[in-house]
Write a protein that binds this DNA or RNA. Structure first.
Lengths: 122, 122
DNA sequence: TTGCTCTTCAACCGACTGGTTGACAACAAG
DNA sequence: CTTGTTGTCAACCAGTCGGTTGAAGAGCAA
């Protein structure tokens, strides 16, 4: 329960069955039994999956008689995309700059094997 | 081991320590010991984390004497972003259309009868 | 050779996960 | 009220996960 939101979302989508549920919920809301129908698992297992998705904020549920329609909350996707884009941009920018090879290796300053540089360090 | 690539990437990033490693690797490559230094865990644990990231394709490793520099492979991010964007777009589009409420909660149509639900209760 | 550093491998441990079955609450319809 | 549908809760089980410690492999430096 005390996991950070980002971990919960990534973890929730790490399961193929849950990803498939999300994919189907993107098309239309569904009930638990309706969601469980294509899979070869018990309805209780699907209910557990839905709890994981709900705890991650990916899904919300209302009441309708004895049914509990499941609705996809796509806003949480932004949590991931912002995180991903941030570091991808950093990595790409670093890749674009060529001089970063000078900074990649030295863990400590006294590099044991000197002069391996191309000899013309600016 | 036979998990699909998408599951591996999501699962790898579900851990906060591994996400932090990715964040630091976006800035610069690093060695195992260098990566392990800020964390309060053993170097072996960090080595395990790196194996997970490597199996997910998020990281590559070269040889350099007895060191094994770790390099971030940002291309795998696209796997996630395409998946996410696909279903977010579907969900948003569905949200924009108003008439879908007619399909999600049919009030007085012939839906409550489960006779034509799935046909084969197996 | 003998060391020393960096890293991984192997075994083990507690906690969590995804699945099961069984019981039960809530509601609709007969 | 009784029956049937829908969904959750509880207990249990095997497997995975993140962590540990200990040993060992791979490469440089004396």
């Amino acid at each position: 329960m005390p996991a950070d939101p980002l971990s919960r979302v990534f973890s929730a989508l790490a399961d193929p069955t849950r990803r498939d549920m999300v994919a189907r919920l993107a098309v239309a809301d569904a009930t638990v039994n309706g969601l469980a129908e294509p899979y070869d698992v018990s309805v209780q297992a699907v209910s557990k999956h839905l709890k994981v998705l709900e705890d991650a904020g990916l899904v919300s549920r209302s009441r309708q008689a004895q049914r509990r329609p499941v609705h996809l909350e796509a806003d949480v996707f932004d949590l991931m995309t912002t995180w991903i884009e941030r570091y991808r941009r950093q990595a790409e920018e670093r890749y674009r700059r060529l001089d970063d090879v000078l900074q990649t290796m030295p863990d400590d300053v006294d590099t044991p094997t000197p002069s391996t540089q191309t000899g013309a360090p600016s």
